[in-house]
Design a protein around this nucleic acid. Structure first.
Lengths: 133, 133
DNA sequence: GATCTATTGATACTGAGTATCATATGTGGT
DNA sequence: ACCACATATGATACTCAGTATCAATAGATC
């Protein structure tokens, strides 16, 4: 029960409400990536009486704070990964769903090279790695 | 009117039907990325009488053939980019939607490094670059 | 041209995500 | 400890992307 997320929300100046406490606890108990539907099911199973909208609102909030990152799985579905709010990338296991953070690893050089070749000014990038752990 | 896509579909051994001819022509006339809804609207505006399902089916088919690639924009919506069926990455302009292909640029080294650090066997990766042209 | 299978469009459905709004609940000031 | 009030909530209803079904249609091959 680390409550890192809750602390971060507190620092962000939002209210620490009941639903937010319960949901962040559920997220921290999870392993690997999860979808909004997974979380909603978790909450439903425990009769938490948490509304659909609240789940989406919290995920958006966590995402803004960089506590969770939204990724696009190879099958096109959206999932979330709890993570540190520093820039990094994710390695997702296609078998078990486990995720690992990977920091820069030399991508800065890649984007610089791409910018040079194309003349674009690159502002964001997204790198997702998929494999087997 | 190059019909590259149509030729490729022919080579893939599927039927060259009316709807497929019309839709591939519409796609080739497009610039930058587009969504399924965009294409559907294009077809609707021209009274082509093409069904919703047909559009999604064609996009899936083109995607399997690597003639089109599905990307996830920063706002979470899915879009498609017509492209060559070789492995590469996309640079998307956040202003005008223009896209450019970028080949390897050294990502192989990045994935190799990530694999070494984590012990994962990396099978796929997705890199999307966003900026201004 | 006949035949046979792949493809189509209409329809209806599912599931993700969002808008609305009256009600409930944290929080900061007293 | 209480109050006041903005913030957050859940119910409901909605929109929009994508999919399943299936009878009708139309390519390809002979």
């Amino acid at each position: 029960m680390t409550e890192e997320m809750l602390d971060a929300l507190d620092r962000a100046g939002v209210r620490l409400t009941g639903p937010r406490r319960k949901l962040t606890a559920l997220i921290e108990r999870r392993e690997g990536h999860f979808t909004a539907a997974d979380l909603l099911k978790d909450a439903g199973r425990r009769r938490m009486g948490i509304g659909r909208a609240t789940v989406f609102r919290l995920l958006e909030l966590l995402s803004e704070q960089g506590l969770v990152e939204r990724i696009d799985l190879p099958d096109g579905t959206h999932a979330y990964i709890p993570c540190e709010p520093t820039h990094h990338h994710h390695l997702v296991c296609l078998n078990c769903g486990a995720t690992t953070d990977v920091d820069d690893c030399g991508i800065a050089a890649v984007t610089r090279e791409a910018a040079r070749r194309t003349g674009f000014k690159i502002e964001q990038h997204r790198l997702e790695l998929f494999g087997r752990c």
